[in-house]
């Protein structure tokens, strides 16, 4: 299953990549692949912007604007003016993933 075309903020800077393949190891959607011993993006549209690759890339070769891909969280963020959040903030009745 793929989400919208060309919607991800994923940016892979191949010049900074050392081919340590940690991004391949942490990506839950197989966005990265090893081809001819070089890491590259296999399919950008598979990216869900979880941010695991960016956090674990020591070389700053991956930039992604990570966040929750959840409509109600984003609407919450719009209403409160903050970042999209599904945070229940301690209230027991609130929705929370």
């Amino acid at each position: 299953m793929k989400y919208l075309k060309n919607s991800t903020s994923l940016n892979f800077i191949s010049e900074k990549c050392t081919n340590c393949i940690l991004c391949i190891d942490v990506c839950p959607h197989g966005v990265f692949q090893l081809k001819n011993k070089k890491v590259g993006v296999a399919d950008k549209d598979l990216c869900m912007e979880c941010g695991a690759c960016t956090l674990n890339c020591k070389y700053g070769a991956i930039i992604v604007n990570s966040g929750v891909g959840c409509a109600s969280a984003i609407i919450n963020g719009m209403l409160t003016g903050g970042a999209p959040s599904c945070d229940c903030g301690g209230s027991s009745s609130a929705e929370c993933c």
């Binding site: 869900m48 990570s66 891909g69 969280a73 609407i75």
Partner: peptide, 15 residues
């Protein structure tokens, strides 16, 4: 929100 393959940029675009 429950789907495991949606991303924030896309959901914003939809909204």
């Amino acid at each position: 929100g429950s789907a495991t393959f949606t991303n924030m940029s896309g959901v914003k675009k939809e909204l």
